[in-house]
Design a protein around this nucleic acid. Structure first.
Lengths: 239, 239
DNA sequence: CGACGCTTTGACACAACTCAACAACCGTGG
DNA sequence: CCACGGTTGTTGAGTTGTGTCAAAGCGTCG
């Protein structure tokens, strides 16, 4: 498998230039890609099987269900991202994953994963780096929910998402496909679905952005960034 | 330095039994502990120096300042926790750290940290494990803010904090020292300081818990756990 | 004593939630 | 082809939770 065919290899390769051997190891680490149906769970909270996946295509989300039935979505892995990496290290997974669209994933064997640490330390560092980026995203999400009102929060969310998608070539500067409905958005943003609707309307009426038919179009990037308190990320974090 | 003297070693040792050599490596990794004054920043957001610290004693918090001056507190590292581990991997730190009480920390040299990956892979795995636990805490925090109201959120927060403190012997089953004032709590919980006050009063009047003079006393553990939607963590996550 | 940091309280405003109903869309099957 | 049900989006009215502003109480420290 060459770089490019495997999303994980492509991502890690942007951190440290990987050798032939390391690329080969990554290939062997992953099982043959398999397809997942919409709504199907990948990892269940509390599950103790040490399974992790790499999302190769499609959309998914990680979330936690509360006792009252409501849920909080933690994040939306996009192609190249790890799913359930933590459940390999911590014995039980602390949250669940589900596919939001038809998706393809490749499984990662936990024991082989641990073996990497002894055989390919540079690869291990790269994985820690990827995990760090993921954690940084959760932190951003936390700040967004904790300290911004519904309008700012939503604006920030779509900018952040667009930024990530652009890095993997799934978005242009002002538009991208986004299959998230208002219920999903509500659970991600810590709002009610109805309020999400009102917020989207306001964003539309203000001429900032539109979400329609699974397509996000940003009409006024500058104004949206101002509203969402968005700051261009620095991606020069190669060691 | 024996296990016990060094908080980090003590923590990692609970994940994998560390060898003499590994313990020795951890000791050499850390600089001589130094003391930090209240309110003093350890890591500034955007700072590019690859510095990390291990908190050995005292209280600190990690936070992000918004453009409008408000702040969101991400978490409260307690002794044994890493501070700014991510700023070693991602080149710039994405948030800041400050001491909340007189604290002592030992610095960690970034280049030596990277060297661990090649020399002591088991140690690297242990560090990744510690980072995973930290991320799990952020996720809990996110869920708490996103999907619980002020009362439940506060209840959950103090239970969670107590749980962590108990693991390092800084809390009994029903009480612990907690130097966080209402402004700090507000910034952590995504509330206003005034509302935190109201919530604390309600918790007190309902006979659930009291925060007074830097001391948390839980009067009715069961009821508080029910209110906060708190579930006992599983700590059997040793590999 | 006054100054300061932190807590407490009340009155009011506003953001976000809930409930209820309806409209648009889309695939399915008659 | 149209009727249908299910899903998703839209809107309004009323309620509740939380923020804001203003002021006072309290303890500590200089």
């Amino acid at each position: 498998m060459q770089v490019g065919a495997d999303r994980l290899a492509a991502k890690l390769n942007s951190f440290v230039q990987l050798t032939e051997q390391e690329l080969d190891c990554l290939t062997r680490l992953q099982s043959r890609p398999s397809s997942v149906k919409v709504g199907h769970a990948l990892v269940q909270e509390g599950q103790t099987g040490h399974k992790a996946f790499i999302l190769q295509a499609g959309w998914a989300c990680s979330f936690k269900i509360m006792r009252d039935g409501s849920r909080q979505i933690i994040g939306f892995p996009i192609p190249g991202d790890c799913i359930g990496l933590r459940s390999v290290l911590l014995r039980t997974s602390d949250h669940s994953f589900a596919a939001l669209t038809e998706a393809t994933v490749s499984g990662v064997d936990a024991s082989r994963m641990m073996a990497i640490f002894t055989e390919f330390p540079r690869l291990a560092a790269a994985i820690l780096w990827a995990a760090s980026r993921e954690e940084a995203m959760v932190v951003e999400h936390l700040v967004n929910i904790g300290r911004r009102n519904a309008l700012e929060r939503t604006a920030n969310f779509f900018l952040e998402l667009g930024e990530r998608l652009r890095l993997v070539g799934m978005a242009s500067d002002t538009a991208y496909a986004c299959p998230l409905n208002q219920y999903v958005l509500a659970d991600a943003l810590g709002l009610s679905a109805i309020h999400v609707n009102r917020v989207l309307r306001q964003l539309r009426e203000r001429g900032l952005m539109t979400l329609k038919g699974g397509q996000v179009v940003i009409h006024d990037v500058a104004a949206l960034e101002r509203l969402g308190g968005f700051e261009q990320q620095d991606h020069m974090d190669r060691v």
